[in-house]
Amino acid sequence: MSVAVGATLLGPETTSTRRRGPRGTARGTARRAEAWAGAVLAGPAVGVFAVFMFVPLLLTVWFSLHEWGGFGPMTWVGGRNYVEITQDPTFWRAFGNTVLFTAVSVPLGIVTGLGAALLLNRALPARGLLRGLVYLPVVVSGVAAGVIFLRLFDPIRGILNQLAGTLGLPQVDWQSDATAALVSIVVVTTWQGVGFGMVVYLAGLQGIPREVYEAASVDGAGRWRTFASITWPLLAPTTFFLVVYSVILSFQAFDSVYVLTRGGPGNATTFLVQYAYDQGFNQLRQGYAAALGVIIYAVVLLLTVVQWRLGRRSAA
């Protein structure tokens, strides 16, 4: 009887284990194969990231703890570069300029990208051509864009001032006036970024089911009501991505700014990346420039984390 009880208690489990054994082994083998396949496929990307992103970041942190002119031996200074940065008025000016530029250019880029997407999402003649023309500035380098707009904003021979003189309007000194210089940079960056925002928003718009709009039309919702109650809320993840992406880009603005204003007039358009470039390559203070780079990275990382948490909280 004890044998029967033992067979009753252990038999089904043993039988089920034996039955599941080959399947469990097969599943485990399949999962290990998938893990190895994923590692092999991701290996090159991880290697490239480590070589060109992670290693330079560590080297930048290491350089920031030294005083070095780019040639010869380095001198260990610890955190002295960071202390000096906190007491540097030019750094705080560049930081304020970068924050102001971000606060103006990011919302303007979001609005123009969304407007272009809403307009070109309709059935228009030559819609594909118009989309291509709007997206074209994205593939133009920042240096080329700066050169193009430098001809437009030139205070003497620029097209804008010549047109203003022809129309009897006051001319603007785009390079000597601080506000005008910042406006010119915002115009260039918006012109370059509107195409990317348009493409991302077009993808979001085309992902909204048509049935939702049809139901709103049946309920009598107008165009603005439909946009406020359906389109804009459903585009929230797209907008969140564009905001984070645009903030990161704005803190890295350099090429078009360097071509247009060189940070002038009087550091009015000096941004963080340009200040780090000037300290590293013009003043030959590589350690100080590396410390500036670490601070820029920390600020961008902090802003990204804050925006990410706010986005998750609003989504919840």
Rank of each mutant, 00 (worst) to 15 (best):
S229W: 08
T179G: 15
L130C: 10
I230S: 04
D177N: 09
L59H: 13
I85N: 02
L310V: 14
P44A: 03
R32C: 04
A228R: 15
F54Q: 12
T261G: 05
V111A: 13
Y288V: 02
Q87A: 14
W232L: 05
I85A: 07
Q283E: 09
G113R: 01
L182A: 03
T14N: 08
D177E: 15
I208E: 10
A144L: 12
V299K: 02
G168Q: 07
R131G: 07
F149S: 01
S256L: 12
T60H: 07
A30Q: 14
T239L: 07
A39N: 03
V61Q: 07
P155Y: 00
S217T: 13
A37E: 13
L205S: 10
L249Q: 14
V40G: 15
G207I: 03
G132N: 13
V257C: 01
T261Q: 01
L272D: 02
A42K: 14
P170V: 00
T86S: 13
R210W: 07
Y275M: 00
G207P: 07
P73Y: 05
W92A: 10
A126T: 08
R223Y: 11
G132R: 06
P170I: 01
S246V: 04
V212W: 12
I248N: 14
T29Y: 12
L57N: 12
M198D: 07
R93H: 07
D154S: 06
A144Y: 06
F63G: 01
R80I: 03
V200N: 09
V139F: 15
A126N: 10
Y275S: 01
L57A: 13
A50C: 12
V259T: 08
Y213D: 06
G24E: 13
S217W: 09
V294N: 04
Q286A: 15
V299R: 03
Q283A: 14
G128C: 04
G263T: 02
L202C: 03
G197C: 05
G142L: 05
T239M: 08
G311H: 09
V104H: 11
L260K: 01
Q206K: 13
F49E: 06
W191T: 00
V305I: 12
L136N: 13
A253L: 10
R18N: 10
Q286V: 11
W224I: 05
F91D: 01
G158H: 00
Q252E: 10
W224S: 13
L9N: 11
V48S: 06
